[in-house]
Amino acid sequence: MVDIMKSQTPIIEIDNLIVSFGEGDDARRAVDGVSFSVLAGETFGLVGESGSGKSTILRAITGLVPSTATTLRVMGEDVSRERGKDFYRKVQMVFQDPYEALHPRHTVWRQLMEPARIQKVPDAETRAKASLDAVGLPQALRWRYPHQLSGGQRQRVAIARALMLKPEILLLDEPTSALDVSVQAEILNLLCDLQEEHGLTFLMVTHDLGVVAHMCNRTAVMQSGKLVETLPVDVLVNGGATEPYTRKLIAASEAYGEAPASLSQLTKV
C-alpha cells in the first residue's frame, strides 16, 4: 500500500454514470448514477457484493456495455460516446476467470501478438518477449495452449497480454478471485511490482476486503447499483466508515478474517 498519492491529477473522471439492462418495464439499472474519479498512479478499489454493479462499471468505461454519463473522461478525453482505436492503447482490462479470458485455441504467443497486430505495433516480438519476462513466465511456455497452463500461469498470460499495448490504466475485474490463496499472493505481488515499474493506475473490482486493504489507496463501496461511499482504505480498515452498509460488510469480512471472534456473535450484526 502506498501512503503518498503519486499525483492529484484525475486520470478517470466519472460523473453520473448510468447503465440499464432490459427495455421498457423490465429495464433495470445495474449502475445507477455513480460518480467518482481515479487519480493517476493510485489503486482505486470498487467493493461490493454480487449484483452491486461493480464489474459493470468497468465494462461501461471500456464500452463493452452501453452507458450514459454526464462525464466520462479518461486522461482528459471524453469517451462517453465513442472510443477510438487509441483508447485501447491507454486502457486495458484483466478479467476474473483467466481461462475464459484467453482464446482457447490460440497459443500463448498468439494471444500476446494479437493486440500488437491489431494496433500495428512495430516491435511486437520484442514486446511480447518482454511482457512474458515482466510477468515472470519462462519463454518456453509460449507455444502452449491455455488448457496446458495452471490458473496462475493463465492469469499471468492475461496480464502480459494487457501489457502488450503499454497502457496507462489497468482495469482489474476480480483478478484473483478464481485463484488459490498462494497463487493470489503471487499475482497481487506481481501487480504491485508492475505498478511501480510502469507507473500504472489500477481500477480494481473485488469482493474481498482483505485484497482491498492490501492493494488499494482509496475505495468506493457499492450496493445495488449505487455508490454508498468513497473513502481512503486506511480509514476503512480502522473503522472510520460512516455508512451502515460499509460497516456491515467489514464486520462480515472480519468474522473469519484474522480477528478472533466467534461466528454466532458476529452474525448478529
Binding site: R59, Y88, H103, I118, Q119
Partner: peptide, 26 residues
C-alpha cells in the same frame, strides 16, 4: 459475450476481424 471475445474488442479490433479471426475458427 465470452470474456476472450471482449478482450479482443478491448484491443481495438474491428467487428469484421473479430468475426473472421475469432468467432469463425471457434
Amino acid at each position: 459475450h465470452r470474456d476472450h471475445i471482449s478482450a479482443v474488442r478491448l484491443m481495438g479490433a474491428s467487428n469484421l476481424r473479430i468475426v473472421l479471426s475469432h468467432i469463425v475458427p471457434l
